[in-house]
Amino acid sequence: MSGILAVLEQRGGVLHKMALEALAAAQQLGSELDLPVCATVLGGGGDALAGYKLDKVLVVENELLNEYTPDGYTLALKQLIAAQAPSFVLFPHTYQVRDFAPKLATAMGRVLVSDVIGHRVDNGTLVLVRQLFQGKINADIRFEGEPPYFASVQAGAFRADKLVAGSAPVEKFSVELSAAQIRTKPKELFRESQRAVDLTAADIIVSVGRGIKEADNIHIVQKLADAFGGELAASRPICDNGWLPMERQVGSSGQTVAPKMYVAVGISGAIQHLVGMKGSKTIVAINKDPEAPIFEVADYGIVGDLFEVVPALIEELNKAKG
């Protein structure tokens, strides 16, 4: 087909929220590169795609794909890609994609350009942008050699609200799979505990990161949250260390929030954290490193030592409130 194939993700027939962004990416690249666009989803959920402007929707049904396994998905997609011969294969950069897409690309002698945050078309050639060094540096990457070319797009890189509606024919594709080829056995999904804190309901969130240095210092940021009348949250390392409970974690492995104001204290802004908070209406960053990636998404920032800035800020807030 020499077009673009979007490989999407679903659970229980419902598309992953990032799947629609990957579909939008496929449509956008399709129009920029003048290529036809198809989409597929394994294990059900294909009907949800028929309402978009696509050349076709490929539905791959096989009872061995009902549950996700890296072996099953890789073997099935390898057959689909060999039969359809797309030039580009796009994925949403989800945890599941991180689990199987590098295996699939390797099995086909290719490299997945993972975690793509932007792109441009340079004389007809696609250039992808991804981050290095925890978001401190960007890199431009091009594909070389023969297609297919594999890429996964990070949350927020493409906008699902730009999806073009339409009516796409749905086509079945059957794959050869045997139970013996699937080496891992997935069990039930579970959650550790009920969440007592719903950060998504907070208007103001004050979030703390590695810069706080030790558990005994957390109270400084709690006081700032109190002064703002907001909820306290944290980046992953803080929760990993047990300094705050996991339910207060914001980021790709924690909660995704979009409050009126998000104050990031001592958080450098690795992409895993940014995807959980960059939809916030106003972002304030306090960090000693002026080059920290958090300043790229901040509306307001203070460069300085948080142990000086936070107490000063609390004092000013109390003054302002009279």
């Binding site: 290719r110 960007n138 594909f143 790229e296 509306d299 920032g301 460069v303």
Partner: peptide
Amino acid sequence: VIHLDRIYMPGKTKKSVVFDGPA
């Protein structure tokens, strides 16, 4: 199969107001 063209400091996606004076 992939080629790194160049690396660079990311541009700001937002116009931010940053204060860097005394705390």
